[in-house]
Structures are given as C-alpha cells and as structure tokens.
Amino acid sequence: MGGWLKRNAIALVAVVVLVPASLFVTFSSDWLSYWSQRASSPVTVERGADVGFGGAEWRVTEVQRIRSTELPADAGAPPGTDVVVVSVAVSPEGATAPSCLMDLEETRSGAPSRTWSPDTGTGVDLGFDLDVPLYCDSEQTGDYTLEAVFVVPADAGDQLRLNVEVVDELPRYLSLTL
C-alpha cells in the first residue's frame, strides 16, 4: 500500500489541491456577491455612543416601549403588542443626510433573531407632529432627530438592537444597542 501511495503521490496531491480549488472557483463569485450585497457585517455600537457611518453621525438618544393597553384606543395599536419608539439623532457629515433602511432586531438565545421594519402597515398614531421624521430623510441638510416606530408582540424580549443600513456601506451596517 505504501508503495502505491508513493508512486501516485503527485496525482493524489493534485486531486487534493484541485478539487477544493475547482469548487472555490465555481462558487466563490456567487457566494461573495451574495454576502457583499446584503447587511452581513455589523458595526456594533453601545447605547448612547456617537458613531460615524455612511456619511453621518448617529446616536440613539431615547428608547420608549409602550404597551398597547397604555395607549389611547384611537392610537390604533394592535392588541397584544408593544410599541417601541427609538429616537435617533442624525448629524450629516456632508451637504445632505444619507438615505437608510432601519429595522429592529430582537436577539434570542437558542433561536433565530426576529426583525421588524418601522411601522408601515398598522398605522399606529402616536401623535407626532407631521414634520417629525419617522425615517431617514435624505432631504435634511442639517442635524435632525428621527423617531423610528416599531410594533412588536408583547412577548418580545429586551435584547433589542436598531440596525441601520446605508446602501453604499453594504455589507457593513450599523447595529446600535438599545
């Protein structure tokens, strides 16, 4: 057996090298492209800290969690839910503020994390003035504070993060601890 291995050593080494190399060449392009086009590399920031990202300074200034039963009936909060309001101070570094996508992420041990987009379908009315931004506003030319509103089930835990995606920064995204 030892003699056979020695006689075929070059061919065996070639197989060991070329098979993984072929797989890498075949799939690496799609694989790398897949991960580079989505938010897959978090830039973690502790609560209250300022961070420069995607052309602006970001800071979470306040987080409120309100049970639906604590809101007036005409607020329209679905029963069995909590409304999470995250106030984010945005200071554009350039002439205008960046556009972004936000979501609220709940991390859970032993289970996949859950994410919620800012409230769009339920239409919860918290009585904000019409000029209060609820999303990233790329038309802002100076510092502003946005109020991101999320509707989550009442059983959602406290391990919450606010994720901010700026297209030009992908796959990096901002992950702010709440």
């Binding site: 639906s68 029963p79 069995g80 089930p153």
Partner: peptide, 10 residues
C-alpha cells in the same frame, strides 16, 4: 382582518 391578539389585549 384584525391585526393583533384580542385575548392578550383583554
């Protein structure tokens, strides 16, 4: 269609 859990709200 109703969003939410009415039992939880009660």
């Amino acid at each position: 269609p109703l969003l939410g859990d009415p039992a939880a709200g009660a």
